[in-house]
Simulated scan of single mutants.
Amino acid sequence: MKIAILTTYFFPEENGITRYIEGLYGALLEAHGELEVEVIVFDTLGTQKWQEKWGQFTIRRIESRQFMGRTYAVPTLKGYRQLKKIFNDNKYDIINTHTRFFFSSFLGIKFGKKYDIPVVHTEHGSGYVQHGNLLVELVAKTYDHTLGKYTLKNSKIVCGVSESVCEFAKKLGAKKVQTIYNGIDAAFWQENVIKNEIKKELGINDGEIVFSFVGRIVPSKGCQDVIEALEKVKNISWKFVVVGDGIFRKKLEEIVSNKKLEDGIVFMGMQKKEMIRNILQISDLFINASFASEGMPTTILEASAAGAKCLSSDMGGSVEILPEENLYTAKNIDELREKIEGYRDIKKINVSRFDWKNIQEKFYDVLKSV
Rank of each mutant, 00 (worst) to 15 (best):
G264R: 15
H145G: 02
K113Y: 10
E167R: 15
K78W: 00
G222A: 02
A303E: 14
D245K: 05
T8D: 11
I276C: 09
E52Q: 01
E325I: 13
A306I: 13
K153R: 15
N192F: 05
G46H: 07
V218S: 08
F248E: 15
K78F: 01
T179F: 04
G23D: 03
S155L: 06
R60E: 04
V41F: 01
E201T: 08
V37Y: 06
S290M: 05
I109Y: 03
A186K: 13
F42S: 04
P75D: 00
S162M: 03
I94L: 13
G127P: 02
N182R: 04
K78L: 10
E208C: 02
T299H: 12
E294F: 01
K49R: 08
E30H: 11
L322E: 11
E14S: 12
I209C: 03
E34Y: 10
K2Y: 10
V158M: 08
F267M: 10
V37L: 04
K85F: 03
D144H: 00
V136K: 01
Q66Y: 11
V351Y: 08
I194P: 05
Y9M: 04
A292F: 06
N133Y: 00
S126P: 04
I227Q: 08
E302L: 11
V161G: 00
L280F: 15
H98W: 10
L35I: 12
K170W: 08
G203P: 01
K339T: 03
N278L: 07
E38I: 09
F101G: 00
F291Q: 09
Q56H: 08
T299R: 14
V210F: 03
I227A: 06
Q281Y: 12
K273M: 15
D144L: 00
N90T: 10
T76S: 10
K2R: 15
G26Y: 03
V242Y: 10
G246C: 07
V41G: 05
S162A: 09
F188E: 05
P12H: 04
E30V: 11
L172R: 06
N96S: 15
L28S: 12
N15G: 13
T122N: 13
L35A: 07
G160N: 06
I359H: 09
N205H: 07
T76A: 02
Q271E: 09
E30W: 07
L83V: 02
L6E: 06
V41K: 03
D43G: 02
Q224P: 08
G125F: 10
